[in-house]
Design a protein around this nucleic acid. Structure first.
Ligand SMILES: NC(=O)c1ccc[n+]([C@@H]2O[C@H](COP(=O)([O-])OP(=O)(O)OC[C@H]3O[C@@H](n4cnc5c(N)ncnc54)[C@H](O)[C@@H]3O)[C@@H](O)[C@H]2O)c1
Ligand SMILES: NC(=O)c1ccc[n+]([C@@H]2O[C@H](COP(=O)([O-])OP(=O)(O)OC[C@H]3O[C@@H](n4cnc5c(N)ncnc54)[C@H](O)[C@@H]3O)[C@@H](O)[C@H]2O)c1
Lengths: 231, 231
DNA sequence: GCCGTTTTGTTCTCGCGTTCACAAACTCAT
DNA sequence: ATGAGTTTGTGAACGCGAGAACAAAACGGC
């Protein structure tokens, strides 16, 4: 017998699909807020900016939550995706490095509304201690272990300069954090059991610049060859 | 005759490779600063956090800049990658939406050091006009077209709420911007000739939360099955 | 000048992800 | 009830990227 358990989270969902589920979630929320009760895969795909076949295949990994000939019940599907993603529960988060970026992150309401609760803001700089950002007080970095233990924090955010990032990551892992979102432009070395997600803003700009440059040189090449062989 | 032009930028570089070149660039800079003159693909791959075979293949798309039996000249390779990426020239950039995130971006020195020059900060809110952030004054959003024209801006950054993002993008495209970095959690509809890169911070956290959730349920399942069949 | 050593550049294979295309399943009108 | 019209869920084909493996090239010692 190969019957699934009641919670039914055993299936392997491809990584590429997991990365898109938050986008679908957001699109469904928008649709729901605009009063749409049911939508087709075509509609949702358009809202999420993907191919409808891809959307249907992605959703099929979660289960069969649509109705053929009709479409998907927006709220029902939204709940199913949220449950699968772990978005139905609250995730305590600590942010380390309350500089420019740390302030912005602490003030960002979008985290809260998606189930992430900032339980602590930590900084190594004593000057910053005691400052209140978005209702949370900045505390010494050394309080990390105690806070992680107290709140059962699994997710940590690093917004320190690159030079400190590896140290901070080590301390986070020591304290029991198993998922890290890293904004510092450094490769972090951590154990296999720790998940690291890196966001590199400069990288994104550099990729855009590359394509701009390519466009420019391509145009130039076209012009040159047009000038050379207008035979 | 299929001889290449002198600038030799005609080759198609895979998108996955382009996304890694900035990482190599950063790793090379770090190596150079630490006084390393020559490095092997193994060394550089370790610094960049990738497989050495992948690194060599990536570099091979740019040309043959290494020496067999020796390795790569750090500064030479760095220059070659920088040239290919368009990082040797200056890219004027405008940031629209000077709220929490916009402030952090404007203050970020990492953009400047990688060849991106913030030529203007724009906001629709009159209250913010005149404020000086990182030496640049915040101006009305309506100045966009004039600024783009004056400085030849190709790249725009959107840091407004999601509700305004599409409008801002439309105005950017109208003004002549052809590459957009979007921080608002919305899908932007733009013409094919415009490149859009989206950074979605909540998404990253949600993916981490998913894996945390999976780890938790997997452990539970293992415990349950261990309890059921300790035969 | 030749041989062993090192390390690059490239070829080959495999697996994942995307997309097409269609059968199955559902609704609605008659 | 039945058939026409929709829309989902999925099997199959395809293309791209990752990684292993190796041949070609450079260096150094003798
Ligand atoms: N500001 C941006 O928009 C932006 C954009 C892209 C990337 N980043 C990256 O994000 C990181 C932070 O950028 P920022 O502009 O906020 O820098 P910042 O200098 O304003 O802030 C860094 C903060 O980290 C604290 N810190 C330093 N070492 C620490 C340690 N060991 N433990 C705890 N706290 C420590 C500092 O006291 C400071 O408050 C950097 O790595 C930067 O490259 C920032
Ligand atoms: N703050 C963060 O750390 C963070 C994290 C992730 C995503 N984001 C996203 O980044 C965006 C900005 O976030 P924020 O926290 O800085 O918001 P914010 O409200 O602090 O700032 C938004 C700014 O945009 C301006 N604005 C609004 N409409 C505009 C328009 N049509 N033209 C020009 N300017 C306009 C507002 O006046 C305001 O100054 C949001 O979409 C948010 O979802 C922010």
């Amino acid at each position: 017998m190969t019957a699934r358990t009641s919670t039914d989270t055993a299936r392997e969902i491809p990584e590429a699909t997991v990365a898109r589920l938050p986008v679908y979630l957001r699109a469904l929320t928008t649709l729901s807020e605009s009063g749409t009760a049911v939508c087709s895969s075509e509609d949702l795909a358009a809202a999420a900016g993907v191919n409808s076949a891809k959307l249907r295949k992605d959703l099929s990994y979660l289960g069969s939550y649509g109705t053929r000939g009709v479409g998907y019940d927006v709220d029902y599907l939204r709940y199913q995706i949220a449950r699968e993603m772990g978005a139905t529960r609250d995730w305590p988060v600590v942010i380390v490095g309350i500089g420019n970026l740390g302030h912005a992150l602490a003030n960002y309401s979008g985290f809260r509304s998606r189930g992430f609760r900032v339980v602590a803001l930590l900084d190594a700089d004593g000057q910053r201690h005691g400052e209140v950002v978005a209702g949370v007080v900045v505390r010494p970095f050394d309080d990390l272990a105690a806070i992680v233990h107290e709140h059962g924090v699994a997710i940590g955010v690093i917004a320190t300069p690159a030079a400190s990032a590896q140290d901070v990551a080590d301390r986070m892992v020591e304290s029991g954090i198993t998922s890290i979102l890293n904004f510092a432009p450094t490769v972090l070395n951590v154990g296999d059991h720790v998940a690291v997600s890196k966001v590199d803003l400069s990288k994104e700009l550099q990729v855009l610049a590359y394509h701009e440059q390519r466009k420019a040189t391509a145009e130039e090449a076209a012009k040159a060859s047009a000038a050379q062989e207008p035979a």
